[in-house]
Design a protein around this nucleic acid. Sequence first.
DNA 1: TTGTAGGCGTTATCAA
DNA 2: TTGATAACGCCTACAA
Lengths: 326, 326
Amino acid sequence: MATIKEVAKKAGVGIATVSRVVNKSGYVKEETRKKIEEVIKEVGYKPNEIARSMLRQKSHLVAFVLPNNTHLFFGELLYELEQILFQDDYKVMVCNSSEDMKKELEFINMLKNNRVDSLVLLTNNDIEDQIDPKLPIVSFDRRLEGVPYVASDNYGGGQMAAKLLLDAGCKKFMFVGDDAQGESTPIKTEVSKRRIGFLEYLHQHGIEEVVNYEYHLGNYLIKPEVVSDLIKNNLDVEGIFAISDAVAFAIIKELEKRGKRVPEDVKVIGFDGGRSFLNSGKRITSIGQSPKDIAKALRNTITNLYEKKEASNQIVPIYYAKGDTL
Amino acid sequence: MATIKEVAKKAGVGIATVSRVVNKSGYVKEETRKKIEEVIKEVGYKPNEIARSMLRQKSHLVAFVLPNNTHLFFGELLYELEQILFQDDYKVMVCNSSEDMKKELEFINMLKNNRVDSLVLLTNNDIEDQIDPKLPIVSFDRRLEGVPYVASDNYGGGQMAAKLLLDAGCKKFMFVGDDAQGESTPIKTEVSKRRIGFLEYLHQHGIEEVVNYEYHLGNYLIKPEVVSDLIKNNLDVEGIFAISDAVAFAIIKELEKRGKRVPEDVKVIGFDGGRSFLNSGKRITSIGQSPKDIAKALRNTITNLYEKKEASNQIVPIYYAKGDTL
DNA sequence: TTGTAGGCGTTATCAA
DNA sequence: TTGATAACGCCTACAA
C-alpha cells in the first residue's frame, strides 16, 4: 500500500501538500493539485485509517455485543444498526456472547483496548457492577447504573396487549414469560415491563386474577413440557399474552394439539412483530418492535454520548402487528 | 485512557521497560516488574491496539461482506465465523450490502483504507473485474479470478438429491432454482452446481427428461404466482429438488394447496439443512451445509492467505438432512 | 502556496 | 537490565 510519503516524493512535493489535497483543506495551487491527484490515482493511494484513528483518537468503530445474531430480532437489529451507521461512515463489529457473561466482559475489555468509539450492549447477565460507566457504552433493553439506554416501550406494549385482549372479550387471562423477575436472579431487564404493563392494565380494569407464569430464562427457549403442562392446567384461559413470538408460537401449537381453536376459543398475543413465524401458517398477532427505529435511537444515543458527552435515554414506540391469533 | 508513557513515569522507569513487562519480552528485574505491574493495575492501563496495529501493519480485523445477515444461513455463517475468529483474537466487521454492488465496492474500498487483514466476500453481482486480486479477499460460494474461495460441495449436493429421489422411486423430476445460469447475467456462482450435479446424475442414470425451471434471481425469494404456475403445469412430477429450503417450502405449500400429499405423492428436497423452516410443521428434507465447517474453512483460507501468502481453495462437504418431505 | 517538524501510542533496536 | 530513539502513516501548526 502506497503511503502519503511515496505520493509526495513521486509528485515532487511535501507530504503536507498531499495531505491538503486528500483532505481538501487549505490552499493548493490548481496545477499542484492536478499533479498530486494524478499520482494518487496512479499508485492507488488511500489514506491509512489506522494512522488517522490514532491521530484523531477516534476509530469510527462501533461494537455490538449481543447474545446471538441468528436470533431473528437481534439479527434485524444488527442489520439496521449497521445500515444506519454506514451512513455516518461507522463500521460495526459483531460480538456474539452466546449469553456467556465471561465473554461479554472479554469483549468489553477488548473493545477498551481497541478504542472502539462506542459499544452497544445487549445482555441479560448480572454484569452491572463490572461495568465502568465511564466507558462509551449504550445499553439496549436494560438499565445499568450510569449507562445510557435505549429500550422499546415494553410497558406500553404490555398495556396494549391487555387492552386488545380485553376489547376482544376475554375474561380469563394468562401471561407467560421468561423475564425472570425476582427470585432466581437480581436482573431486571426492561423486558419485564411487558409483564408489568399487562398486569397493571388488567388490574386497573377490574381484573384481579391473572395466571402469571414465569419460567427460567435461558436461550430464549421454552421447553415443550413446560408449555404442555401450562396449557393442560389452564384450559379455561381465554386470552394469553406471551413475552415473545417464540413463546406465543409454542403455546398456539400446544393449544391446537389439545383441540382449542385459536383465536376462536383462545386469543394469543406475542411480542416482537410476528415476523419470525411467517412460515407457521398462522400469523401471530403481536406487539411489534421496530428494529429500524431502535437502531436510529441507538445511533442518536451514541452520537450524543460521543459529541455532547451526555447520556440520553430513549424509549422507542411499539406498534400493533395484526395477525390471525386474535 | 492511560498510556504507556504515564505508566512509565509513575513507575519511575522508561517506556521500554513497561513494554517489556506488558509483552513479557526481554529481561526485567523482578522488583521492577512488580512495581510496574502495580502501576498498570492502579491506572488500568491497556495497550492501545490501534497503535499496535500501526506498528505491526496488522489490524486483527476481518470484514464479512454479505447480502444480509438476517437471512438465516448467512446469519449462521456470520455467527460461526465470528466465534471461530474470536479464538484467534480477530474481530469481525459485518458489512451488509443488501445485494447492492455499489455498496459492495464501497465496502471493499473502505476496507482497503482500514487495512483490514482479510475480507470475506459473499456476492452474486457481476463484480469480478472490479476486484483487485492482490487484496486479501476470500470468496464464498463464488469463483472470482485470482481470488481464493471456499464453497460447499454444491455439485455433490445436487448429485445426492438426485440419488435420493431416484432411490425413493420417483420417475419424473423437476429442478427449481434462481441461480440465473445463463441469459440474464454472466454470473455463475457455485450455487449453480446444485443444478448441474442434479441433472448430470439423473442423465447418467438414464433419465433424459427433467423439468428445469429457472426463475430470476433476486432477494432469494420466489414469487407465489411463479410457484403456483409451475406446480399447475407440472402436476405429474414426482420428485422435486429446490435450490434452497425457502423455495422448497413455497413449493410444498403450493402442492398441498392443490391436493398433493408430500411426500406420498410428491417428494421434495431443499438445500441448506432445513433449519429455517422448523416452524412450518413439516420438516423439509434437505441437503445440509454446515455453517461451522464453512467458517472453519474460511478461517484456514484466511490464515493461509495471510501467513503463507498463497491462495488455497476449499470445498466443504454437505450432508443429508433427513426431514418429512421425502 | 508550500514544506518541516512534532506528536498520536507502540515496539524493536542499540547503547549504556 | 535498562532507557533513548527511530519507526509505523497521518494531520496540523508554524515557518518560509
